[in-house]
Amino acid sequence: MVKKQKRARLIYNPTSGQEIMKKNVAEVLNVLEGFGYETSAFQTTPEKDSAKKEAERAALAGFDLVIAAGGDGTINEVVNGIAPLKKRPKMAIIPTGTTNDYARALKVPRGNPVEAAKLIGKNQLIKMDIGQAYEDTYFINIAAAGSFTELTYSVPSQLKTMFGYLAYLVKGVELLPQVSKVPVRITHDNGVFEGDVSMIFTALTNSVGGFEQIAPDAKLDDGKFTLILVKTANLIEILHLIRLVLDGGKHINDRRVEYIKTSYIEIEPKSDKRMMINLDGEYGGDAPITLKNLKNHITFFANTDEISDDALVWSQEELALEAIAQKFAHEVEELKPEIEE
């Protein structure tokens, strides 16, 4: 019996992280070949949705694994390419961006493409939740709205590339006096919130902008968003909330914050003012909008040895058994043609 070889497609952003990936492609391919994958690479282009289109093509071509190498934006694009499909390949990430929130959540080595690729050999998997914002738009980490969030749009893209979240932070402090509250109606699993907010923040992981305390108890695979509503626009109170975030995530119990776990969110503005939605750090459309949590939608390679048990619903033992079951099912699929003959 000739065993079918697994195939992997590396989709990498050549300009991310001072072109670090470009310098390491050959070695990364060699690592993946060593793990039994017939591996090929695709270099993204400035064309719109370049990574997304290639991810969809690779998935439809039957690749077993798609690796996204770049910043969180590249990972978002690749996810958007495979998330709508019924049969989705496994995913891995090689983080080379500035913030790398998703890599922090999955405990993937940052700034070292070869070490990140080696993680695949551990064969540790997590069925990750993915957010759906519109019929054909998905996000991996955050969805946000409100005047507090809209300040980030004024950060020049060059500064974002060079300084990552630090650029947002500096610009945000500079513009904090302009924060205002807007009236909204938000429907979620537990009921309805109606009132004025300066920020609506929805998280899928506990890592946001390099901080791991904004949604400190977020789970990666429970089918729930962490919804945070900031009910103040007072500068002193906002600065106090920021201090509470840095002090172990104590903001979640503050009276000026609504902290909710929910599988879906409907956001409706209650004024004529435009409300822009930020998806994974980029403009993603306007409210009204419904956000759905797609539970366990894409299987990612991760370093589960370093991920806190509190961040997962599935135990590491269950994940290991699931990996064995998937391998068995894959081998049965490979045997089918021979059985039918």
Score class of each variant (00 low, 15 high):
128 M>W: 05
92 A>R: 12
110 R>I: 15
95 P>I: 08
127 K>Y: 03
119 L>W: 04
117 A>W: 05
117 A>V: 03
84 P>E: 04
128 M>C: 07
125 L>W: 13
126 I>R: 08
131 G>N: 00
100 N>W: 09
101 D>T: 02
114 V>K: 12
91 M>S: 05
113 P>Q: 08
118 K>R: 15
102 Y>A: 02
88 R>Q: 13
112 N>E: 09
103 A>M: 01
88 R>H: 04
101 D>A: 09
89 P>G: 03
92 A>P: 06
116 A>V: 07
101 D>Q: 15
96 T>I: 03
134 Y>K: 15
102 Y>H: 15
87 K>W: 00
100 N>E: 01
113 P>I: 11
91 M>L: 14
130 I>E: 00
100 N>I: 06
100 N>C: 07
110 R>S: 06
116 A>S: 14
91 M>D: 06
131 G>E: 01
101 D>N: 15
102 Y>L: 14
83 A>L: 06
84 P>I: 11
99 T>N: 12
106 L>I: 13
110 R>E: 10
98 T>R: 14
90 K>V: 04
101 D>C: 13
115 E>S: 09
133 A>C: 02
111 G>N: 05
88 R>T: 02
88 R>S: 13
114 V>T: 12
120 I>C: 12
116 A>C: 01
97 G>C: 03
133 A>T: 10
96 T>V: 02
124 Q>K: 13
90 K>I: 06
129 D>T: 10
96 T>G: 12
133 A>S: 07
90 K>A: 14
135 E>K: 14
